[in-house]
Amino acid sequence: MAQEFDLAKFSEFKLRVNVNTSIENAYRAWASSSGVTSWFLRATYKDQQGKLRSGDELAQEGDEYALAFTTNPEVIICSGKVLKANGRDLFSFSFSKGCPVTISIYQEQDETIIQLIESHLPTDEETIRKHFIGDTKGWIFYLTNLKSVLEGGLDLRNKNAALKSVITQ
């Protein structure tokens, strides 16, 4: 008997990665622009008065952020708001289609777990195809790179601006 296709399952996804680092380091990797730039995209955070935060300064709830490729900093590929930032282990921001991405950091089996949940995604066919599938693929690479950078310092991102369409970009 054919199973009914449950669209609700496509409204959010959860990804977890274990990283050999402290909770504090993992939090900085998300909440500071220098941290985000080291493993993800070139990031800037601005406070609610529009003032640019310095590289190591932690972003606060209500901040605005912008992301660009490190190989092409002129082109902003995503911008949004910091929705939650508790300064320790919980950080949330608006992302694809304005939907929230929530990062929780906690200990499990003596290891630090970074958990990412992208939620409230619309469940129309186009959003599922472009954002549920596309964002899952994107986050899997970047969370792997986060683990690599925090554990050993090896940055897996493509650094050749002329090279297009590779999963490391």
């Binding site: 082109v75 590929i77 289609k97 954002h131 596309g134 964002d135 690479f141 369409s165 590779v166």
Partner: peptide
């Protein structure tokens, strides 16, 4: 056109932003 045929991470996000701008 490249983004549509490519396999880069967050290609849809990048395309949406480019179209919006």
């Amino acid at each position: 056109i490249d983004l549509g045929a490519g396999s880069g991470s967050f290609a849809a996000l990048q395309a949406d932003m480019a179209i919006r701008r």
